[in-house]
Nucleic acid binder design. Structure first.
Lengths: 233, 233
DNA sequence: GGTCGTGACCTTACTCTGTAAGATCGCGGC
DNA sequence: GCCGCGATCTTACAGAGTAAGGTCACGACC
């Protein structure tokens, strides 16, 4: 069944690695990586599971490919950015790139976790990092400091970092007073902090934080620290 | 088969959540999370797969449990640390904890990737972070700055961060001269940096870095940045 | 001591996964 | 008209998680 007795009226767009990978991203966007199975992927492109293997080596290849595709999207965007007017603007330029990457990855929440499971280095990731090094070099970094910088940034360079408390997780804000008191006994500092932070921000419930602000806070600490090292170096 | 006609001479140690989780860690240590299946886990504890379900809810629960177990190990170690002699020593104390956590996690390479897939917050993780906040509070941090600090540290707080280039991945150092030249054309800054960094360290091949040093470099940038903010704040 | 409930454990079976092997289909070149 | 060949589909299999129900040992009660 499926495409067996295909009416000749439907022209059948041919499969391709590109089309398969785009479909994979679409499926993951909708249902997470868990939903991305070869059969589901085949269905999405109007084919049978085994037909996919003429365009991708296996499922690992699909996962590698989707990562590459997404970073490629990021590269397309950041490549259009103007180079910094002054060398000293390296920090602004790097910051802008990272935040652009983050913006794209936020549309694919499943991607960061997937990235960390890839062992093969994607060419697009290499290209992205190459661009960052270029900016830092122009800003006065030694090669050595560039190298350290990439390590210091880690996944933050690509616009993500493990979010501390995921609000989508275990029931948000349904804690009873008794449960909260029990928590306060076991984790006094944590509950104290959350009580105060939540008070400052009335929208905030236990475990909710402004991801974007926190991300930028961490990013700025690192960039500022690197800038100081560069000046001293 | 299996435990069916068990001779009464063998006393049969009873299953328990604890024993199952410890076995799970052992299997993952040996063969990675991929090797951790319910059947393999049952075999390890001398039972049948379905018997495990009397002690754990399902496989997700096993994974959650192993995470909790490992962080519990970390907490046992860091809880024995003396509190800092002077408030200003918060940085040393936090640094010491993080590096202790890292040391333990380095013995379970599969764990970091697993952590990032857990949505439920482990009580042991809460306890660990609670301790960090305690140190920072004693060192003069506002609750707000503690909060930012945890976000800035991210997974680094627990002693890991995505390693940039995994040397175990795609063939280390077998690049031909032609391939290297092709790479240099596509990624000039990256290849330039690696050439120089590798030159400084003759042990280093393309893609190899001193993880521990890089980790501490990044950690120190963040801790120094936080210290400056605390003083200014 | 018999019996009976209760859980720990095992057996079987089902659905879903990735993918190997081979059949079939359709189109371009002779 | 025929052939060759690559793209596609069909079938099948091993291994995953786990639902449903059977079995068996042990402690509580009469």
């Amino acid at each position: 069944m499926g495409a067996r007795n295909r009416p000749s009226s439907e022209p059948r767009v041919p499969l391709s690695r590109e089309r398969v990978l785009r479909a994979a991203v679409a499926i993951a966007d909708e249902g997470g990586v868990r939903a991305l199975t070869m059969r589901r992927l085949a269905e999405q492109v109007g084919a049978e599971a085994m037909s996919l293997y003429h365009h991708v080596a296996n499922k690992e290849d699909v996962l590698d490919g989707t990562v590459d595709l997404l970073i490629g999207e990021i590269n397309e965007v950041v490549d259009r950015f103007d180079p910094p007017a002054e060398p000293a603007d390296w920090k602004k330029a790097v910051r802008r790139r990272v935040l652009a990457a983050r913006e794209i990855l936020l549309r694919h929440r499943w991607a960061p976790a997937l990235f960390e499971t890839r062992s093969a280095v994607s060419p697009q990731v290499l290209r992205y990092h190459d661009g960052l090094i270029g900016l830092m070099r122009a800003g006065g970094f030694s090669h050595d400091l560039c190298h350290h910088a990439l390590h210091a940034l880690g996944s933050r360079a690509l616009g993500f970092a493990q979010e501390l408390f995921d609000p989508s997780g275990a029931g948000g804000g349904e804690e009873s007073v008794a449960e909260l008191e029990a928590m306060a006994e076991r984790f006094p500092h944590l509950v104290g902090m959350l009580a105060e932070v939540a008070h400052d921000d009335p929208d905030s419930t236990l475990g909710w934080c402004d991801d974007q602000a926190e991300f930028e806070f961490g990013l700025d600490i690192i960039l500022d620290g690197l800038d100081r090292l560069r000046e001293a170096g």
